[in-house]
Design a binder for these strands. Structure first.
Lengths: 103, 103
DNA sequence: CATCTTAGTAAGCTATAACTTACGGTAAGT
DNA sequence: ACTTACCGTAAGTTATAGCTTACTAAGATG
């Protein structure tokens, strides 16, 4: 059920922006905040959520904290997606639909 | 940006349950409501969101409305995921991280 | 060692997502 | 035709997600 955290983490636009910014390169909290229309504490809180969803990780460097993308969360999501992706599933669904319509 | 709607649609647990219930077989609103701990109108509202995210579609049948899974939304999500999935991206990220650590 | 930077946490505010009950409207059954 | 079944929409309530400012702490810098 790890994908649940990923869904709600990436459901927020600001959080997606932060996540996508980290895609370019690892960044500190301050750097990330400059690229977003919200305050630095807000970014901190968002990063906490992203971290819990295993979408980012931190590397403390003295004073600063460098955040970088982590793929674990995406992998959880991909696995969930995959389970919906069999042709058999789709075929079964439409078949039932056809029968219920009485055709 | 269609994936945005998919993220927020599937971020809600009840909505995921409904979606996963439809995975088994197409169902009417009433049938879906019986399987969920919320009222029937609530299910209706959830279905509206799922439909907007292109995750389900409807087939009206006289009195009732048969909902069934639609893959378009999942496809949008899969495409978004894929863009994060290149090895080059990951490699670049860790490289920068290493340099910033001064190693 | 004083202060300036960096960032997490606390507390409080506000918009809204998710729910409820009530209602209206269309199709089916008698 | 009348009643029953099915479902969407409206209106109103409530919990909470996301934001802010203020505070605290720890490392850099002079």
């Amino acid at each position: 059920m790890a994908y649940a955290a990923v869904f709600s983490a990436l459901a927020d636009p600001t959080r997606r922006h932060i996540f996508e910014a980290l895609r370019e390169q690892p960044q500190t909290v301050g750097e990330l905040a400059k690229g977003q229309p919200v305050s630095r504490p807000a970014v901190s809180q968002h990063l906490k959520v992203l971290e819990a969803a295993k979408l980012v990780s931190v590397e403390p460097q003295g004073n600063r904290r460098l955040y970088l993308i982590k793929r674990d969360g995406l992998e959880d999501l991909r696995q969930y997606l995959e389970s919906f992706w069999s042709d058999a599933l789709s075929a079964y669904g439409t078949e039932i639909a056809r029968r219920m319509k009485g055709k």
